[in-house]
Design a protein around this nucleic acid. Structure first.
Length: 137
DNA sequence: GCCAACGTTGGC
DNA sequence: GCCAACGTTGGC
């Protein structure tokens, strides 16, 4: 299967890109939303993942990669919830702000804008490439 | 700090 | 199964 593209959101106060850089890898736990769970389950090793910081930063700040497909989330009280493992790959030379994404016509349909509360979402290859461009990568 | 959007819960 | 109430997320 060809590589898929994803975007995950995190409040930097909870877990920031800088934390992933420090840790090098992390288990992406704590997702408690059915739609996000479907996306976690669809992730494959080697898929590319944008790291978006919400609330204070409001920008895509880095690129990560899936290193382990979905496994049971050890932080969940009930069975069925899953986590994946991610490793940090590199920061974007320039963060791509929410405002910049909103200002880009070709990104008008991305899930980030359409479903503001979804924390794990797929991106098309075109969307992924566009954000890379905006980030100067 | 406020509020809109959205998901979840629980009463009927 | 519907819908009101409530909690959470996240932009502004």
């Amino acid at each position: 299967m060809t590589k898929q593209h994803w975007l995950v959101k995190s409040e930097p106060e909870a877990y920031a890109w800088a934390d992933l850089v420090r840790d090098q890898r992390t288990d992406w736990t704590g997702v408690r939303n059915y739609q996000a769970r479907i996306h976690l389950n669809a992730m494959r090793k080697g898929d590319a993942v944008f790291f978006y910081e919400s609330v204070t930063t409001k920008a895509v700040v880095g690129i990560a990669e899936v290193t382990t497909t979905a496994f049971p989330d050890p932080t969940a009280d009930e069975p069925g919830w899953v986590a994946v493992a991610l490793k940090g790959v590199r920061p974007l030379p320039q963060p791509v702000t929410l405002a910049a994404i909103k200002g880009e016509k070709s990104l008008a349909t991305i899930a980030l804008l359409r479903q503001s509360r979804l924390s794990v979402m797929p991106l098309t290859a075109t969307e992924f490439t566009k954000i890379l461009q905006l980030g100067g990568a």
